[in-house]
Design a protein around this nucleic acid. Structure first.
Length: 420
RNA sequence: GUGGAUAUAGCUCAGUUGGUAGUAGCGCCAGAUUGUGGUUCUGGAUGUCGUGGGUUCGAGCCCCAUUAUCCACCCCA
């Protein structure tokens, strides 16, 4: 075989493609109902955007980005987007959306690219649905974002997903807590793995995420951010929980979720599935009150999440079974002989114009095989046109499901099919 | 970046101690009195056995390398 697709990429076609389209349609309806509007930002941006937005210390920036230089003399560096938020924040500032009525509520459906080793639920080109809500600092904004995520799962018919919720505090309390945590980790340094010792210096919060048993043993006694929140942070977190309860959204407080992107403050959450393999996070997000300022804007609060379309579809498939091809046509027109073939083309075109999905034989198959074909493509109705029909102006239209048939005139076909 | 498994027809897979590939199932194409599908029956097509080396008289089967896929770690969606 010739050239194959790049590692970790997929071709979308057939029933899986249909499932993707259906999912995207669900997302768009959902966002309409919450008053979010779609935004599409470029597939690539200046490298600095992601370095600043996602965070220099993250794995995404340090080793997973697809970067390149274009042909410009200025030797600018670009990167394919590794996630959705940075580009949307850039657009918010560049297009001065802050000057419009606030809050700004946006959603996106986009490919994203990360150079990683592929496995179940993980690709080098994957697809994200995400939302961003700018300009609202109260807990009701967090609740609205989480609520949208929850409804997304409900509308997709996904059940076995648990909402994990945590608060990381604001920049100040995070800083104070960091000192306490580092102190604790230093006291227990001998027991930690190598990467944890490194992380202890660069990004101590991440140590809490370590899955190595010996580290876990130490971590379970570590001081928790949740117990070192400021009064304002606590009030915010309690607010979020109260809203979720009123909205009847079940959650588990999980002090261990930290999230690997640097920009999060206060609320962080993940919707986690446990039946799609090791990559169980189907949707993850939180509040990022410092990000917009970091990117050069006025201090502006923000909340959002990203959801992995491939992972969502894995859970959908678990819940509903294998994806089936969607029915594409209402009618198949078969033909015998040259004159009939020409007439069939003309009829098909008129019917399509009238909104009746129609296929015709393009291979010169026998009548029997044309019928087999009609069955294969799952047409609802079919008829054959030959010398008899040409002479009488009447066709016998057959319901492929029931096998019943009726004889009608050429000009009655569209109405006949639409009536049912 | 680390580790494990796999790589034979379009798909799922057989292939026995190495003797130059399957009556396998599904799918595809066609036929069963010349104008009607879904069931049944019959027939048919299709493989550089992932790629490149090596061992051997001889390799799908052994060895090495390489690529890809899957799974896990890491990280994340």
């Amino acid at each position: 075989m010739g050239i194959s697709a790049p590692r970790g990429t997929q071709d979308f076609y057939g029933p899986y493609m249909d499932a993707v389209l259906e999912l995207e349609a669900t997302m768009r309806d959902l966002c309409d109902d919450f008053g979010f509007s779609e935004i599409r930002t470029p597939m690539f941006e200046r490298l600095e955007l992601f370095q600043r937005g996602v965070g220099e210390t993250t794995d995404i920036v340090q080793k997973e980005m697809y970067t390149f230089t274009d042909k410009s003399r200025h030797a600018r560096e670009f990167a394919l987007k590794p996630e959705g938020t940075a580009g949307v924040v850039r657009a918010y500032l560049e297009r001065k959306m802050y000057a419009e009525t606030q809050p700004t509520k946006l959603y996106y459906i986009t490919p994203a690219f990360r150079y990683e080793k592929p496995q179940k639920g993980r690709f080098r080109q994957f697809h994200q649905f995400g939302i961003e809500l700018f300009g609202a600092e109260g807990p009701e904004a967090d609740a609205e974002v989480i609520g949208l995520g929850y409804q997304m799962l409900q509308r997709l018919g996904i059940k076995d997903v648990v909402l994990h919720l945590n608060s990381l505090g604001d920049a100040d309390s995070r800083k104070k807590y960091n000192e306490i945590l580092v102190g604790f980790l230093k006291d227990n340094e001998e027991g930690l793995c190598e990467t944890c010792r490194e992380r202890m210096v660069k990004n101590p919060l991440r140590v809490l995420d370590c899955k190595i048993e010996s580290c876990q043993a130490i971590i379970k006694d570590a001081p928790l951010m949740l117990n070192h929140l400021s009064q304002a942070d606590t009030a915010h977190f309690e607010g979020v929980k109260a809203y979720l309860e009123e909205m009847e959204i079940p959650y588990e407080v999980d002090p261990w979720i930290v999230r690997g992107l640097d920009y999060y403050t206060r609320t962080v959450f993940e919707f986690i599935s446990n039946d799609i393999g090791a990559q169980g996070t189907v949707c993850g997000g939180g509040r990022y009150d410092g990000l917009i300022e970091e990117m050069g804007g006025q201090p502006t609060p923000g909340v959002g999440f990203g959801a992995g379309i491939e992972r969502l579809l894995l859970t959908v498939e678990n819940a509903k079974g294998q994806f089936k091809a969607r029915q594409k046509v209402d009618l198949f027109i078969g033909a015998m002989g040259e004159t009939a073939k020409v007439k069939a083309m003309g009829l098909a075109n008129k019917l399509r114009m009238a909104g009746v999905g129609t296929s015709v034989d393009l291979l010169g198959k026998s009548v029997k095989n044309q019928m087999k074909y009609a069955n294969k493509i799952d047409a609802k109705y079919s008829f054959i046109i030959g010398d008899n029909e040409l002479a009488s102006g009447q066709i016998t239209i057959k319901n492929m499901e029931t096998g019943d048939s009726d004889t009608i005139g050429f000009d009655q076909i569209a109405d006949y099919i639409k009536k049912v």
